[in-house]
Design a protein around this nucleic acid. Structure first.
Lengths: 195, 195
DNA sequence: ACACTCATGTAAGCTGTTACATGATTAA
DNA sequence: TTAATCATGTAACAGCTTACATGAGTGT
């Protein structure tokens, strides 16, 4: 059962798929990504971890710390990976906030190389359709009795962002296809992910 | 007292500043902008109109319709315009969803020409700073023990979107500055900006 | 008969926030 | 002593959504 548009819960599950972490670890990690997706408050983060646990999507291990509070390290389970896979492959709405797409990018390591490419191509076709629709709408406006200034600005703004995303997708797909990363060679790129 | 990040209430107030409308009018108008900002449900729209009324930011006039239900037409008041001006000039956070900025674009007709330019320039300086920070962060990552694939993708994605917004801002500012639009001559400019 | 547009509204619920509470350890 | 970091959590509320309720007219 997916939740809201943004689904912080599944995103957090995705982070735990990359490596086991405590709630505090997640907080610090997301603070570093504040510019992109914002960081959730403790008031949402800790309850989410509890519900993930109740649904058996994660397990906990309490690690007592020397000279500091004990930490609860959460690890994803096999049924958690299955649930994640479903979420990770479902497309985000084109009018959803960018962070909804960015969150799926951030857990790209949870994808196989092939399914990451497929997902980006799916996004590409969506945004292309979106862009085409906007272009038509822009063309259909007669200059004389045309839209208000506000609508014009919004439309050209929307087009610019969509175009930028298309360019980025094209470049990224080319890059990922050009370097097809042999199986099992991925952890060499991933070590210091928590700064 | 501003509300959440997105402040649907002020945005609706801004729409009513452009022309008096009923709740249903607003719904239809925003349905046409679904691709950009999404359209609010009746469950949020109508309560917002009531609170705007209670704060004396708008007035109502019930217009009985021939062969259809009566409509409640809302008009902005003078104190409503003052409240709107405050909201309209406050900058949106760089990590806020794009719709937060797009909403302010959509009610551009509520701005004077000068204050619209000022607002776009403010946004320009914000996004420039943001872009610079991201570029530095990108440069500080060594490719070898660098960030995970997900972080790399997210960073380049964020940079691409920021760059696109900067380009759009530059072009739009040039366009708006180049045609300083003598008073009341705005509807003649039309769709030239939209290709 | 059924469904759709017009038009307004309420009730319940979901997702997230802020602010608070706890308690230990370290740095100014 | 005051504050900050580490670490987890609760309670209250804000902002929205879905689903429902109402009721008239219009179209198939």
């Amino acid at each position: 059962m997916p939740a809201g548009v943004v689904s912080l819960d599944y995103f957090i599950l995705g982070l735990l798929a990359q490596q086991p972490m405590s709630g505090y670890d997640i907080k610090r990690f997301l603070k570093g990504l504040n510019w992109l997706i914002g960081s959730p408050s403790g008031g949402s983060l800790y309850p989410i971890l509890r519900t993930l646990l109740e649904k058996d999507l994660v397990t906990v291990e309490v690690v007592p710390g020397v000279d500091r509070p004990p930490r609860k390290i959460y690890s994803i389970t096999e049924s958690g990976r299955q649930a994640l896979q479903v979420w990770v492959e479902e497309p985000v709405a084109t009018n959803a906030p960018l962070k909804a797409f960015a969150m799926r990018l951030l857990i790209a390591d949870s994808y196989s190389h092939a399914s990451l490419l497929a997902y980006l191509q799916l996004r590409q076709s969506q945004v292309t359709a979106h862009h085409t629709a906007l272009t038509e709408r822009a063309g259909s406006q007669h200059p004389d009795e045309g839209a208000s200034l506000g609508k014009q600005l919004a439309l050209s703004y929307g087009l610019a962002v969509a175009q930028a995303e298309l360019d980025w997708l094209e470049g990224t797909l080319a890059w990922l296809s050009g370097e097809p990363l042999p199986e099992g060679d991925r952890q060499s790129t991933g070590a210091a992910s928590l700064d």
